[in-house]
């Protein structure tokens, strides 16, 4: 980091009132704090139903999950008002973090329980169908991308979804599963990466618990905005490490 330079990230929480399921807010807190601790200014705004949206005016866009009730509330606005801007944002490399329901909505379509095909944003090449039992529990997986960067590759979180997601051409998994179900409980993949879009089924404390992934998202956004930016300062992540250690011990992961 160039200490004489002032860095600033603009972050948008889409539908913060409706898509805030069980701790999604923790991801915004983690991004803000990890910027603040390094002297990077992070401005968090929200964009709600009916408000106009320009994805390209933000560096990071967050689309979380909701209960079915809330997801149905935002669906029309998402597809009719926000969609063109989201497609342009993805095209131009804006960083997106999409979780659970937000992940599903970024895809091509969702087939619901009655077999009806519901159109989604078609911003990334993934598709989802509902299927049987809800996949609920701790989820631990490894990110090849983090491993390549020399960071701790282990991602730890909690999943709670009934949708089964499958990746199409161009999307790569965010991680490979060690324990848990992930995308569909069949092919050992979890989440998706496409351009600067990061998708996962791990909700709640995903970024607080996975500081390397939080930093990768911040770094990706900073590099895009400041071409001379190289890397973030290291910070002590003692509690993060201990919280992760607890789960690693439980699932006997080295």
């Amino acid at each position: 980091m160039n200490r004489d330079k002032e860095y600033c990230l603009k972050i948008c929480h889409l539908y913060s009132k409706q898509l805030n399921l069980y701790g999604d807010r923790g991801n915004m807190i983690a991004l803000a704090k990890r910027c603040e601790w390094r002297g990077i200014s992070a401005q968090i705004e929200s964009c709600e139903i009916g408000e106009s949206f320009d994805a390209c005016s933000f560096d990071i866009v967050f689309l979380g999950g909701g209960q079915d009730f809330e997801q149905n509330l935002i669906r029309n606005d998402l597809l009719e008002v926000k969609r063109p801007s989201i497609l342009r944002g993805v095209e131009e490399g804006v960083v997106f973090l999409c979780i659970c329901g937000g992940y599903q909505m970024m895809g091509e379509y969702y087939i619901d329980q009655s077999g009806e095909k519901i159109d989604c944003l078609n911003a990334i090449p993934i598709r989802t169908e509902t299927g049987g039992e809800r996949l609920i529990g701790n989820l631990i997986c490894t990110s090849e991308e983090l491993r390549r960067l020399g960071a701790d590759p282990l991602l730890i979180g909690f999943e709670n979804h009934s949708g089964r997601t499958f990746l199409g051409d161009g999307a790569v998994p965010l991680a490979e599963i060690i324990t848990g179900s992930g995308n569909n409980g069949r092919d050992t993949t979890e989440g998706a990466r496409f351009r600067n879009v990061f998708c996962t089924y791990m909700h709640g404390s995903f970024l607080p618990k996975n500081p390397a992934m939080a930093d990768l998202i911040i770094t990706t956004a900073l590099k895009r905005k400041y071409p001379d930016f190289t890397r973030l300062d290291d910070i002590a992540d003692e509690f993060e490490a201990s919280a992760r250690e607890e789960l690693k011990k439980r699932y006997k992961i080295k």
């Binding site: 805030n20 069980y22 701790g23 999604d24 807010r25 923790g26 807190i29 609920i136 529990g137 701790n138 909690f158 709670n160 909700h203 709640g204 404390s205 607080p208 618990k209 509690f239 201990s242 919280a243 250690e245 607890e246």
Partner: peptide, 30 residues
């Protein structure tokens, strides 16, 4: 409940907590 994510929905930011604070339990570090 095996999902402890809900603690992130709690507004710790707006209350003054006497320090030091002690934490425990199987998810104490969370």
């Amino acid at each position: 409940g095996t999902d402890v994510s809900w603690i992130w929905d709690v507004d710790f930011e707006s209350v003054k907590i006497p320090l030091p604070v002690h934490v425990s339990g199987s998810r104490g570090f969370d």
